[in-house]
Amino acid sequence: MAGYFKKMYHSISTVLTGLGITIKYGINPKTEVTQQYPEVKREPPEGFRGKLFVDINICTGCTACARICPVDAITLKTVRDENKKLRPVLFDIDNARCIYCGLCVEACPVDNCLYFEKKYEFSAYSKEDLISHFGLGEVKPAESKTEDKKTEAGKEGKEAAQ
């Protein structure tokens, strides 16, 4: 019989303790931790692994990134321009395949060439739209024209990335 009441007391007291904790949260609006996402956007910290970006003008076309990528998200095609330098004419990163592991960024031998942007909102309506194209397109042998082309393509690439 004593056990019967003891059990009852134990149940009631622990239930009341629990209720005490929840009501503290229930009546205090300051405890809310939700961020209202589309209105309040959190700033990702330095080194956030968001969308990949390639500064195509300084890319040497060494293909280290494409080779290290474990999921083959990077498609690279290089040709030699008239200075015998390798130029990436095609540089596609499939954001749908990429797992944001960071191996390519670490593999890239050129500083600030391939890096993660802090961007994390890039949903699209079709899979194709998720591929960012950074490639230079055609590389013409003529020096001056190549220069023009490069900057243009670079711009395009940036736009595509946005």
Binding site: P44, P45, E46, G47, F48, R49, I99, Y100, C101, G102, L103, E106, F116
Partner: peptide
């Protein structure tokens, strides 16, 4: 973790030989 390695779920932070980068 995000501060340390940039990812929130699939960290890939501890690598062969050490860690991928020093903590900021």
């Amino acid at each position: 973790f995000e501060i340390a390695c940039g990812a929130r779920l699939t960290y890939n932070y501890i690598r062969i030989g050490g860690v991928s980068k020093d903590i900021p």
